Amino acid sequence: MAVSPPVCDFGVKAPEFILPDPDGRTFGLRDIAGARGTLVMFICNHCPYVQAVIDRISRDADQLRAHGIGSVAISSNDVAHYPQDAPDLMKLEAQKHGFTFPYLFDETQAVARQFGAQCTPDFFGYNADLELQYRGRLDSSGRSAGAPDARRELFEAMVRIAETGQGPREQIPSMGCSIKWKA
């Protein structure tokens, strides 16, 4: 079932967190924050919506680094019921798609709940003061990739945030699989 998160709650501060990557190294919000903004992405391995855009996510996060934007991906799914999202497979997924940012495991799901994450992918774009400025989609892709020349909505919004501290007022919510919450 496809889920769409609520619209951007402008100015809400990013929650602090410390989470491990699949190798057991821990990262906190301050470790990944960029000088001009921060992108927090809730993704997972198995979701077709994520798979449709995973290489675009990797490309955009990599290119945003040049604009002073730090990025992180977090998987919060219940791996007991979705073993394809387990940390050892997260590591392989990150390698396969050339992630240049940490891919962290939220085993307790507390971080997803703090952020109010709803689906995969769910994007949270913050300015340099870690105030929320973007809660929209990557681009027009859905369960399958959009056109190769699709407008790069997330990328454009994050560049604007890096330059002005403000996100666009008009945002189209992301859509994806619901986060697989533990019972």
Rank of each mutant, 00 (worst) to 15 (best):
A61R: 09
M158F: 09
A86R: 10
R152D: 06
M175H: 07
A150K: 05
V7W: 00
N45D: 04
A61C: 15
D9Q: 08
L138E: 04
W181K: 02
V12K: 13
V50T: 12
P5H: 00
M158C: 06
H46Y: 10
A110P: 07
S141C: 05
C119G: 05
E170W: 14
G125T: 00
L154P: 01
F123G: 01
D60E: 14
Q118Y: 11
D55S: 12
M1P: 15
C8V: 13
L64P: 07
G70P: 03
T26W: 07
H46T: 15
D62I: 13
S58P: 11
D106H: 04
G167R: 01
V53Y: 01
A147G: 11
R36G: 10
I69Q: 06
T108Y: 10
R36C: 13
S140L: 12
P168N: 14
Y103S: 05
E163L: 10
L138Q: 04
R36D: 15
V7G: 11
G136Y: 01
D122I: 00
S174N: 04
V3A: 11
A2P: 15
S58G: 09
Y126R: 01
S141A: 10
A80Y: 10
R135Q: 05
S76D: 10
L39G: 04
P20R: 06
A157K: 04
P83A: 14
R36Q: 15
Y134K: 05
E163G: 07
P15A: 01
N77V: 06
S140M: 08
P6C: 02
K91S: 12
D106W: 02
A33Y: 06
R36W: 11
F17H: 00
D31K: 10
V3N: 04
N45F: 01
P48T: 09
D85P: 03
C47V: 08
Q114Y: 05
E170C: 13
G70C: 08
T26M: 12
P121L: 05
L64V: 06
A52N: 04
P20E: 08
K91L: 13
D21N: 15
V79R: 02
S174P: 05
A147N: 13
P173L: 01
L130T: 06
P22E: 08
Y126Q: 03
S76H: 07
R56S: 00
G167M: 06
E16T: 11
Y134W: 14
E156R: 05
S58W: 05
R135Y: 00
E93N: 14
L154Q: 02
P20Y: 08
L89P: 02
I179A: 01
V111P: 02
I54W: 03
S75F: 06
L39V: 07
I161C: 07
A117H: 03
I74M: 03
D31P: 12
P15W: 02
Y126N: 01
A150G: 03
V159F: 05
